[in-house]
Design a protein around this nucleic acid. Sequence first.
DNA 1: CGATAGACCTGTTTGC
DNA 2: TGCAAACAGGTCTATC
Length: 272
Amino acid sequence: MPELPEVETIVTGLKPNLEGKLIHDVQVFNKRTITNPKDIEDFIATIKRTTINEVTRKGKYIDIILDNKMHLIIHLRMTGQLIYSNKEMDFTHLRAMFKLDNGLLYFNDIRKFGTISLLHQDELLLEKGYHTLGVEPLSNEFSDCYLKEKIKGTRPVKNFILDQTVIAGLGNIYADECLFLANINPKRPVNTLDDMEITLLVDAIKEVLSKAIENRGTTFSDYKDSYGGKGENQNFLKVYGRGKEDCLKCGKKLFSDKIGGRTTVFCLDCQK
DNA sequence: CGATAGACCTGTTTGC
DNA sequence: TGCAAACAGGTCTATC
């Protein structure tokens, strides 16, 4: 489900409700959701009676920083939802729940792929997937120069921009949208992009992600923000989910194919 | 190094 | 209509 814009929307919504609040208790309904520590009782005991200092995002990870130098690192994968409420709510796929001063934080996850990991700040530097994250695409670090440094080999440009060690937070929906906006064929070997195309791609990534955040994310089926609401960005997608429909630039039929195992929609005429 | 398939799960859509 | 296959926002592992 969530890519950078969705996770960003969730974190923005959680901040005012979680920061400075005490965690009274934790309940875990699916043990496999908790990836660290292995012992659930240990997990619960370490969190109880701590205060949340800050809620931030890194790539698609949510980082809840506690006052005992521990971090709750949460990844929603495909169907995870993190919803805050000051009322009791019913969820069909509730995997964990945090009882706070003033309300409840629910972790609901249909497919059980989502993970919650409790790590000491020193362990973050070793955590697989997390410590190798590339730059934030909406930061100044993400530039033409940065991408040129990272480019090597002949893999398709779509695989390259989905690589989390290159760009933190880009996922399948927005990768397709960015390549369409930049008029670049997703199958192009990444080392064949010229300077102009790299500039177009960098600009397209910033544009697409910024707009998606303004629209509070894309809701196809499962994504919800921290209040349980839907996003609006699905109304503005130009290629994702539009396989076999007409290209909004040239009117011809869009093409759908698998690249790197992921469904990819693009225009054979507009994207060179 | 990279590409690919399988694994992890459940729910919904598609196709015969 | 009915049921099985295919597919879904993600990422890790094994294998060639």
